[in-house]
């Protein structure tokens, strides 16, 4: 896949890639939640500078990382516009017919924009530096204490793994069906939105039917290979929480704290 979007893994060998996925997931979660406590421009600058440094360390080219952020640019612009135009807090800065811009709105809008951008950057950095399989493994480990509350941690992780395994396969199948339908005269590129959506039905129906057939066969294969849920199962993949992972967590806490206090 040529276009890398949000949530795409970017393979490289960097200190960030080498961290335990659990450490990265926890650090990201803490950072994302903590961002709601940051309440000053200086604070956002501190967190932003730290994230920029992390991107530099991660070995992801800055251009590629900015592309990760592109899909959210529209949402950010929209929220800022609403905040700026409809908030009536603080001194009036500009008055133009029915439109008024207040200082409070400007402040809230820019804070919101920064918060969303930093939040997405943190999440993007996590998925860009962590292989999807490692992410699934990390989540299973982190969620496993919830098993006592009957949360199906193993099943969720297994679902993620299977989804990761079959996304490319189903993608190829969708392409094949699209070509087969095009060969029968289906047209996917013309007409209005409704017609184009309708043209997708002959692709989606066989794709769905095929996915169910696959699921059936996969279930048979899994059972015949002795799968019986997470109970008594060992793991091939090993996660090791090392000193550097603890260091990374401590560092994240420090960055967040200075951001909140700044």
């Amino acid at each position: 896949m040529a276009n890398r979007g949000l949530g795409q893994f970017y393979p490289a060998s960097s200190p960030l890639h080498a961290l335990d996925p659990r450490a990265k997931i926890v650090a990201t979660a803490v950072l994302v939640l903590g961002l709601f406590l940051v309440d000053s421009i200086a604070g956002f600058l501190v967190v932003g500078a730290a994230l920029a440094a992390l991107v530099a360390i991660s070995g992801i080219p800055p251009g590629a990382f900015l592309r990760i952020l592109r899909p959210v640019a529209f949402i950010v612009a929209l929220t800022v516009m609403f905040q700026v135009l409809f908030s009536r807090e603080g001194a009036t800065l500009v008055e133009w017919g029915p439109l008024e811009v207040h200082s409070g709105g400007l402040r809230l809008g820019s804070f919101l924009a920064l918060r969303i951008l930093l939040l997405v950057s943190a999440a993007g950095l996590l998925t860009a530096t962590t292989a999807p399989v490692a992410l699934a493994d990390g989540l299973e480990h982190l969620l496993s204490p919830l098993k006592r509350l009957r949360f199906p941690a193993h099943e969720v992780a297994m679902m993620m793994t299977i989804a990761l395994r079959f996304i490319p396969t189903l993608g190829e199948e969708a392409e094949k069906i699209t070509r087969a339908q095009a060969a029968r005269g289906a047209d996917f590129s013309e007409g209005g939105l409704l017609r184009r959506v309708r043209a997708l039905i002959p692709v989606l129906v066989p794709l769905t039917v095929g996915a169910f057939r696959r699921a059936d066969e996969l279930a048979d294969a899994m059972e015949s290979r002795g799968y019986r849920g997470g109970e008594g199962r060992t793991r091939y993949r090993e996660l090791r929480f090392r000193a550097r992972d603890a260091l990374a967590l401590a560092l994240t806490g420090l960055i967040l704290l200075s951001g909140i206090l700044a």
Binding site: T161, I162, R165, R213, R214, A221, Y227, T234, Y236, R237
Partner: peptide, 19 residues
């Protein structure tokens, strides 16, 4: 095609052993 469970070859080969 529909019998392989894991996203990587070695993980799939290990699947039965994990079970």
């Amino acid at each position: 095609e529909n019998g392989l469970v894991a996203p990587f070859v070695e993980d799939d080969v290990a699947f039965g052993l994990e079970n």
